[in-house]
Every structure is written in structure tokens, then in C-alpha cells.
Design a protein around this nucleic acid. Structure first.
Length: 836
DNA sequence: ATGGTGCATGTTTAC
DNA sequence: TAAACATGCACCATG
């Protein structure tokens, strides 16, 4: 409507905030009230707009009639009854209000906006958009309005204006109106078209309504899909109207979001007007009904309403509806009621414990819930308790919609439901025709209807997977981050850092430094690694290790050597290891049966791991997961052995621990053979060799330096030794208070080299070292060698240069003989036995 | 250990 | 920015 002047000459207030659209009418329209002077502009059929006064008085703003219940209760103690009656909630006295003459315009009030009138007793289509949308009109919409009004002299001007404007560009209302008024007199614009009969005007609006819908369907960027209500009609697509106005605010916004239009309307269009439109109905009368947010307005179709009324053999008054949140539909059995709805349609309660309330479902079954509230920030939070059986009975879940209606007379509350769909109500721009001819989002009012989906089933999670911004936005309410993180399926999104280790690949831009260790070439990178393609490790019956990778183009699986490192984007053409399988046209390397078995095994493994983690109080599995994956890979050929993935990590170690113990493949069952060439083992071995090489190099350099120092004064030599001791001391401090001396560490390393230390031994604890005298471990060498790997584990962001890191740790390594040297701040926090 | 209850708190939305 | 809302969580009862 835009900011508008009050037609009262004595007022003429223009600030839109001074206007209140607070008087919702039974007919579905609203009366607008100027808060400054009190003038009302309404489209009421019956007079039922009452102005509250203190002390229980109500005053009809139209007829001026005042009523009083006889008590001195506050203004909030009234409840609207149907058709003009009110009852005092305090004394229950029922007062009848006689309606004034229908079609009687408020005395002294003038219509607002581009109305069409047909004399005093005619209809007044009013603009009911939300305040925030008031200040923008598109030229297109103004044109439609004008066409509906039949102001032909304005239409041509508007069309010209529209041509002049860029397509779909929106203009400020005042600018537009100003333009219009420059081109034609405002009196002409508002001039009643007496020549057109009322029915014709109504038809024009209905036609406009359809045109608007078609327009929005045809033009995804269309800015006009609003439908202005006729008096006595329900307001169609309030949200839609709202949305279109929001879109109309800026082109950018319109571009970024698909235009929202009624899904039912879409379905209707698609189905040739078979289905009813699903639109938001203004709330039924009740306390505070004018405060109900449109999202709670019932969106039942006339057809559904008829059917429901027929089934229940009663007159049904839709009250409100709500999209079930996760907690609403959860096992806790508490359904949070919108505050305004609870206060409008449920009995008033003064005590927090509330009252039992009987609600029947659409099949007539009676349910008893506890209607109560919790104090919340000086307010109330209303809940229905004990809804779980009912929710389950209706087979609804988070994302679905529960509806509340009322049977009149009697006031019996009725609970119903409507299923959310993949592409239904929440997915306006992708409305589909369902096999049963129902529109998406059928309300289960009849007790027999339900949403039929081509896939035969759906969950709200399915809805989540729709990449539709509208549905995503709506579903944000019910699927927030917390819920996602606890969703089993979403666990797949929670790629843990240890899983990520599988994916580490050298940066393509990074040039490795080739070093030779025992005649073997090793690559060292200055750049941090990148993530590569995820693969599955398995072994053939022959025992040969291999990995499976899926082509990003054809999705076929290819067998690759176990050492193959793939970039994140990998296709068959990158299969340099098999010339017969380097094309997408080549057949799958693995049969569907084998693949299924593989995935089954892999999923079971994941489930076990998740379960294992949960059972350990959410404890991340550390690199043992990586090792376990490798173990699993080893056993993939033998499904019966896949359970070897379970580890026996030392209980001392904390969640996230990446210490020398925790990162190891398990000892005992499932441990890797010395000849194992799996990813983990090969990486660990490589790292170890690199370290040993560097250590030897450093040692020889120092020996050389010492040799040079021989000839220097003894004092200098002492100073050097002192300095070296200091470095060693610092290194030990960095080992998280581990107090092993240098000799001890060296000894430990020697033991490790001999393969005599158990993985579950903390090399820094004397008792463990002693206890492990008899222990054997084939992977002790790996233990020693995992230092640089730890750097990645502990530093997911801003990884240090590996080269630099190795150098930085060099002194430490020298002093502690490379044992379990871990980054300060990583192991120190996560695995400090002394903290326990 | 498990589940229910009531409140607190973080997030979203309307104004 | 405040209200509304969704949900986490401490506390308690029960088995």
C-alpha cells in the first residue's frame, strides 16, 4: 500500500507505522486503522472490529456500539465468538453483538490506494501486504491493479511506463504513484467505475488472480504474483504476496532467489485446474488472532475442508498449522505451540502445569495432551505434552505439518497433518503432478489421503537433499546444524580429520625434493598436502593389495595399484596403470555384486566405527581409524574378517589423541604384517626412512663440526655443550613433561628398532617401558616414524612446511631419538598421561 | 542406566 | 533488538 496519507483532513499522517492493519475480519479482509486519529478504512461485511478499551469495554469502531461484560477484567479476557458475539473469559457471560448493515462503509472513512469502487456499497479490494513490503510496487503490479479496476485511461500510461522501465524493474511506490499522478489525475485513478457491475469486477479480479499465477509461473523473475483479495474471499498466497514484494525490492534479490508462488497454484496450472489452490487462510476468530503470523495460517483447500467437514459431520474451522520441528516430532513428546496460536485458540491457563486438553484426530480418535507453558524470558512458551503417540499415529515427522482445527459448534479441537514432500509446498517452483492427482502436500484430513511419491517414500531428509533454496530456507527451521550433526546420514558429512588423512595428496604445484634413502627415492614437499580422491582398499584372493577408484565421469570403478595416489578429480583417462581400462567406454573393473559386497562391508565398518565412537563418548578414533581402514582393506576380500577393524587403544588416551600409541594400527588381531604395503604402512615406513636419513645426515654434520671444534679452546667447547644441553632440555619440555632422559630415549629407540615395544606402551612412562619388556610389535618402527605425519594430523590449518617442520623437530629428534616426538600442543593436550 | 521434567540458552525472525 | 522458538542439559525419579 505504501506510505499513505490518512484521508482525514485533520490528520493526514503519512508515516506507515502509524497505520495498523490490526483488525482482521471474519470475511478474510482487514480494516486499517489510523493510529493517530482513529479513522478506520475497512472492507468489512459485518461490523465486528472492536476496539479494546480498558476495564473490559469494547467498542465497535464502525457502529460505535460498546459492550461490557459486567466484570472489571482486563481487555484480554474476551474471546471472540462466531458472528459477532463475544464472551468474557472471566465471567463467561456471552454478549451478542448485532452486526451493522452489510456493505456499510465506515462513516467518514475513505478507501485507500488504487481502489475500484462502485458506490458506497461496493467492494473494496485492499492491499494487505506486510508493512515491510509496503513501500514497493512494481509497475507490472500497478498495471494489473489498474486493469482490474478498469481505469482504462491509466492503463495505457502504465503500459508506457512499464515499457520505459527495464523488464521487471521495480519502483518505489511513491515514485510510481507520483509518475502516475503526473500523467493522470489522482482523482481519475481513484475514481469509482460505476459503469462496471460488481460481478464483473469480481470476475476481473479472479481473472487477474489466475493471470498473476500464470505470470509467475511463466516468468521466474516475475515480480508480480500477488493476488489482491476481494472482500469476502480468503486472502490468497499471503506469503506469496509477501515474497513477491520482497523480491520486488531489489532485482538482485529477485535474481538470487526463485520467485515463490503457490505450489498449489502451480499444480493447478499443471493439472488443468484439477486441484484446489492451497492458500493461507486468515486465522479464525479468537483471542489475539490478529497477531498470528501468516506462516501459521491454515492452508487447507476448500476441497479438503469440505471433505473434513463431511467426515466429521461438523462445521470445521481451520485454526492454525505448524511445521514440525525435530524436537516436536522427537521422542520427547513435546510439541511447541506458537505462542499466539496457543493464546488464541487454546483455553487460557494461568499455571505452568497447565491443563489436560482433549483433541481428536481426523479419524475421530480422542487424544489427551497436557497443554501447559514454561516461563521464558518474561514470556511463555506453550507446549503440548504427550503428543508422541498421536504423532506416531499420524505417521508424521519433522518437516511435516500438523494442523489444528475446531469443530463448531462445540469448540472441539481437531488435530490433522499434512506431509511435507520432496517438491511440494516447500518447493514452490518444482511442483509436480502426483500419480493420484493430488497436489503435493496433501493434508491428511480424510484419513486416507497421503502423499504419493514416485519413489514410494520420503523423509524430511529427502527434502533436505533437494537443492532448492526455498525449501532449504524453510527446512532450516527443522534441520538446523545440531540436528544435522546428529543425523546418522549426516555423519557421512562429518569427515573426521583422521578420515581426511586418506585423502591427503601432494599439492600439484608442489615440486618434491627427491631424497635417497637406502637407494630408495623419497619425495619431500614444502607445500602442505591437498585432498585427493577417496578410494577403497581391498585385496584379492591372491592376497595382492589393490585399491578401487571411481571415475568422476562414468562412475565406473577401476582397480588401481595400492600405491596409486589420485587427485581429487580422477577419471578413467587418468588410469595410467591399465591401458585397457583407461577409457570410460571400458567395462567396469568390478562386478556389481562385488561392489555391493564391498560397500556393504564398508558401511558395516563405518557403522561399527561410529557406534564404537559413540560408545566411547564420542571419542574420535584417531589415526587408528586410518590404520583400521587399511586393516579393513586388507580383509575386504574376506568379509568375515572385516571386524578386525576394532582396535584396543589404550584407555589412557583421550579423544582426539594422535600420540604415538593412538595412531598405530592395532596390535594383536588385525595388526599389519611387516611386509604390509598398505597405504598406512607404506607411508609410515617412508616417513621413518626419511627421518632416519635426515638424522644420519645431521649426525654426520655434527660430528664434522665437533671435529672442527677439537682445535678450539676448551671454553668454547663447554659453551657449545651447554647450549646443546639446553636445546635438549627444551626439547624435553616440549614433550609434554615427559621426563625421559636422552639416554632413556635412545635406548627406547633401540628397543623400538628391535621391534620389542608394544604399541600400547607409552614410551615416556617408565612403568610402561618396563612392562613392555616382553612386548613385541612389528610396527614399532612405524611408531618412531610417524612424527611428520603427526604434524599433519595436528595442524589441519596452516600446515607448516613439512621440510621446515622436520628441521624444527630435528633437535628434538636427536635428543629423544625420534620417539613419539609429537607437536607441542597436540599431544600435550590430547595425550598427556600425567594429566590423567 | 535410563527417561522424564523444567529451565536455560542459542538461533531465528519480526519489528 | 526483542520476542519467539528450538533444543540442550542439569536435575531428579525410577528400575
Amino acid at each position: 500500500m505504501g506510505s499513505k496519507n490518512c484521508m482525514n483532513e485533520a490528520c493526514r499522517k503519512t508515516t506507515s507505522s502509524e497505520w495498523k492493519k490490526g483488525w482482521s475480519l471474519k470475511s478474510g479482509g482487514f480494516a486499517t486503522l489510523c493510529y493517530t486519529c482513529g479513522s478506520s478504512y475497512e472492507n468489512s461485511v459485518f461490523c465486528e472490529t472492536f476496539h479494546f478499551k480498558e476495564s473490559g469495554w469494547r467498542e465497535c469502531k464502525i457502529c460505535g456500539k460498546t459492550v461490557h461484560c459486567g466484570c472489571t477484567a482486563s481487555k484480554y479476557l474476551y474471546e471472540y465468538m462466531d458472528f459477532g458475539g463475544i464472551s468474557c473469559l472471566s465471567c463467561a457471560k456471552h454478549l451478542e453483538i448485532q452486526p451493522v448493515q452489510p456493505f456499510m462503509q465506515t462513516p467518514g472513512a475513505l478507501p485507500i490506494g488504487p481502489f475500484m469502487t462502485n458506490g458506497v456499497k461496493d467492494v473494496y479490494p485492499i492491499v494487505t501486504e506486510h508493512k515491510r513490503n509496503d513501500d514497493k510496487f512494481s509497475t507490472e503490479r500497478l498495471l494489473q491493479l489498474t486493469k482490474a479496476v478498469g481505469a482504462n485511461d491509466v492503463i495505457s500510461k502504465l503500459e508506457q511506463l512499464r515499457r520505459e522501465e527495464s523488464m521487471l524493474k521495480t519502483v518505489d511506490t511513491q515514485t510510481c504513484v507520483s509518475n502516475l499522478r503526473q500523467q493522470c489525475s489522482s482523482s481519475a485513478f481513484l475514481k469509482p467505475d460505476i459503469s462496471r457491475p460488481k460481478q464483473e469486477v469480481k470476475d476481473a479480479y479472479e481473472s487477474l488472480s489466475q493471470q498473476s499465477l500464470n505470470f509467475s509461473l511463466a516468468s521466474p523473475l516475475g515480480s508480480s504474483s500477488s493476488v489482491l483479495p476481494l472482500r469476502g474471499e480468503v486472502i490468497e498466497g499471503v506469503e506469496q504476496s509477501k515474497s513477491s514484494f520482497q523480491h520486488g525490492k531489489t532485482t538482485k534479490q529477485a535474481l538470487s532467489k526463485p520467485v515463490k508462488h503457490s505450489p498449489a497454484a502451480s499444480s493447478e496450472t499443471n493439472k488443468g485446474n484439477i486441484a484446489q489452490k492451497r492458500f493461507a487462510r486468515p486465522p479464525a476468530d479468537g483471542r489475539g488472532r490478529t497477531q498470528l503470523l501468516p506462516r501459521y495460517w491454515p492452508k487447507i483447500t476448500d476441497q479438503e475442508l469440505q471433505q473434513l467437514s463431511g467426515d466429521l459431520k461438523s462445521s470445521i474451522v481451520p485454526l492454525f498449522e505448524k511445521i514440525l520441528s525435530a524436537s516436536d516430532a522427537g521422542r520427547i513428546g513435546r510439541l511447541v505451540l506458537p505462542k499466539a496460536c496457543a493464546e488464541a485458540y487454546f483455553p487460557p491457563i494461568n499455571q505452568s502445569e497447565g491443563i489436560p486438553i482433549r483433541i481428536q484426530d481426523i479419524k475421530g480418535k480422542q487424544w489427551t495432551f497436557q497443554f501447559r507453558f514454561w516461563p521464558n524470558n518474561n514470556s511463555r512458551m506453550y507446549v503440548l505434552e504427550g503428543v508422541t503417540p498421536c504423532i506416531q499415529n499420524m505417521q508424521v515427522q519433522a518437516g511435516d505439518i500438523v494442523t489444528f482445527s475446531r469443530i463448531d459448534p462445540g469448540g472441539q479441537l481437531v488435530i490433522g497433518c499434512r506431509k511435507a514432500t520432496n517438491n511440494g509446498e516447500l518447493l514452490d517452483s518444482h511442483a509436480t503432478i502426483l500419480p493420484n492427482g493430488n497436489s503435493p502436500g496433501e493434508t491428511t484430513y480424510s484419513g486416507i489421503t497421503d502423499t504419493l511419491l514416485p519413489t514410494g517414500g520420503r523423509t524430511s531428509d529427502d527434502s533436505m537433499q533437494q537443492s532448492n533454496p526455498v525449501s532449504e530456507k524453510k527446512l532450516r527451521n527443522i534441520k538446523n546444524k545440531r540436528l544435522l550433526m546428529h543425523n546418522d546420514d549426516a555423519v557421512e558429512l562429518r569427515i573426521t580429520w583422521e578420515e581426511a588423512q586418506e585423502l591427503l595428496r601432494p599439492s600439484p604445484a608442489a615440486k618434491p625434493t627427491i631424497v635417497l634413502v637406502e637407494d630408495l627415492e623419497f619425495e619431500e614437499f614444502d607445500e602442505p598436502p591437498i585432498f585427493g580422491k577417496r578410494t577403497i582398499f581391498t585385496s584379492r584372493l591372491s592376497g595382492e593389495q589393490e585399491q578401487l577408484a571411481q571415475c568422476d565421469i562414468c562412475s565406473k570403478w577401476r582397480r588401481l595399484p595400492v600405491h596409486a595416489l589420485l587427485s581429487a578429480k580422477w577419471t578413467c583417462s587418468d588410469n595410467i596403470w591399465d591401458s585397457n581400462r583407461c577409457s570410460c567406454s571400458a567395462a567396469d573393473d568390478i562386478s556389481p555384486q562385488d561392489l555391493e559386497a564391498l560397500f556393504t562391508s564398508n558401511n558395516e565398518f563405518k557403522k561399527r566405527r561410529i557406534s564404537d565412537n559413540v560408545s566411547k563418548e564420542g571419542e574420535p578414533s584417531g589415526l587408528d581409524a586410518l590404520a583400521t581402514i587399511a586393516v579393513l582393506g586388507d580383509n575386504m576380500g574376506d568379509m568375515g574378517e572385516s571386524s578386525a577393524g576394532a582396535t584396543t587403544r589404550h584407555p589412557r588416551h583421550r579423544p582426539g589423541c594422535s600420540c604415538i600409541v593412538c595412531i598405530q594400527p592395532p596390535s594383536g588381531k588385525g595388526k599389519h604384517e611387516p611386509t604390509c604395503k598398505c597405504n598406512v604402512c607404506s607411508t609410515v615406513k617412508r616417513r621413518f626412512k626419511t627421518l632416519m636419513m635426515r638424522k644420519k645426515k645431521r649426525q654426520s654434520e655434527r660430528e664434522a663440526e665437533l671435529a672442527q671444534e677439537k682445535d678450539k679452546p676448551a671454553l668454547a667447547k663447554i659453551c657449545f655443550e651447554k647450549e646443546e644441553e639446553k636445546v635438549a632440555g627444551n626439547a624435553l619440555l616440549n614433550m609434554n613433561h615427559h621426563q625421559e632422559n636422552e639416554d632413556g630415549n635412545r635406548m627406547h629407540l633401540e628397543e623400538a628398532k628391535k621391534g620389542r615395544l608394544d604399541l600400547n606402551c607409552d614410551p615416556y612412562r617408565e612403568e610402561d617401558v618396563i612392562a613392555e619388556e616382553d612386548g613385541t610389535s612389528l610396527t614399532t618402527l612405524m611408531n618412531v616414524a610417524t612424527l611428520p605425519f603427526d604434524m599433519f594430523l595436528g595442524k589441519p590449518n596452516g600446515w607448516p612446511s613439512l621440510e621446515a617442520s622436520v628441521s624444527k623437530k630435528e633437535d628434538n629428534l636427536d635428543n629423544v631419538a625420534g620417539e613419539g616426538a609429537v607437536l607441542p600442543g597436540v599431544s600435550g593436550q590430547e595425550c598427556n598421561p600425567e594429566d590423567e
